[in-house]
């Protein structure tokens, strides 16, 4: 793609010049990112192995179907697409910062770095909302002992097993202990208009309230689902977080004029490589956890 012609007979490996025509720092950033790609790859492939080895797995369209302030509306893929576009756009502003850096245009670099940092923070905010929603959202689940209970999606518990037919739900309801019935009725009131004073209700009242509700009950799912989801998105989120910190440092250094003194903006380029890598990993996380 480079339009500069390489002089014929250039002795790349005779010393005195970089055989890769690149600075040490940039080459090493690339090798670091390559090793990081292997780490993420190992995580995702291990997730794939476990998913291939089991008979049932949570359907991502059921688990990730909510949107902030949308209540219980069923919106599969909507929120995660927003997150994807935020990250792609912050990648664009980053590459624009690198571009302006090549032209030694300090003001423009500052502007685009600020936009990139805001994009990163917006992504982290979205992820925080998503995690909170999963960790606190309780779902009625058919437990292995035949009773019903409310479970959240955590690293240890997974309410997203196989859908349970209605008659089995009614049978399980009869076996469910009183305190769990209270939990279930409380989970019905969550976010809705009807707030029940569950603790004061009798056993039969609890059961009839639950029967009246249109419950979608699943069996207990594989705990591996939450472990992999929180493990991998957490590791990626940590990369986004450290990327934001690096970008803030780069912004401050740009403002202080360090790169103008140095005569080049190569540090912006290296931070940019890291930031694009974070976007690249998200492309694969998005594929593995949300799309397929």
């Amino acid at each position: 793609m480079s339009t500069t012609a390489i002089p014929a007979g250039t002795k790349w490996w005779n010393g005195g010049r970089s055989p890769f025509n690149s600075s040490y720092g940039k080459v090493m950033m690339w090798y670091f990112l390559m090793s990081d790609a292997f780490t993420f790859g190992a995580f995702l492939i291990s997730y794939g192995t476990i998913r291939f080895s089991v008979n049932d797995w949570a359907d991502p369209n059921h688990v990730f179907n909510s949107f902030p302030f949308a209540g219980h509306a069923n919106l599969p893929l909507a929120f995660v697409s927003l997150m994807t576009f935020i990250l792609i756009f912050s990648s664009v502003t980053m590459v624009l910062a690198v571009h302006e850096g090549h032209k030694m245009n300090r003001k423009a670099v500052e502007k685009y770095m600020i936009m990139t940092i805001i994009g990163g923070l917006a992504f982290l905010g979205c992820q925080a909302w998503e995690w909170t929603h999963l960790l606190t959202g309780e779902h009625v689940t058919l437990m292995h002992d035949g009773t019903l209970a409310t479970l959240a999606t955590t690293v240890k518990s997974n309410p997203w097993g196989v859908a349970v037919p209605h008659d089995q739900v009614l049978a399980a309801l009869q076996k469910t202990p009183h305190d769990q019935l209270i939990n279930i009725v409380n989970s019905l009131g969550h976010g809705g208009a009807a707030h029940h004073d569950a603790a004061a209700m009798s056993h039969d009242q609890l059961i009839s309230t639950i029967q009246a509700a249109d419950l979608h009950v699943n069996t207990v799912g594989r705990p591996a689902f939450g472990s992999y989801f929180f493990g991998i998105t957490g590791f990626h989120g940590f990369h986004v977080f450290s990327g934001v910190i690096i970008n803030i440092v780069m912004y401050i250094k740009t403002r202080l004029g360090h790169f103008d003194q140095r005569g080049h903006y190569e540090m912006i380029e290296k931070a940019g490589l890291y930031w694009h890598f974070v976007d690249l990993v998200w492309v694969f996380v998005f594929l593995c956890f949300y799309l397929i």
């Binding site: 480079s2 339009t3 500069t4 390489i6 002089p7 250039t10 005195g16 010049r17 970089s18 025509n21 690149s22 600075s23 040490y24 090549h102 032209k103 030694m104 005569g263 080049h264 903006y265 190569e266």
Partner: peptide, 14 residues
Amino acid sequence: SQHTISPEITFAPD
């Protein structure tokens, strides 16, 4: 428009 990053770099990318 940019100074040379390192003398080891043979040609600057376009």
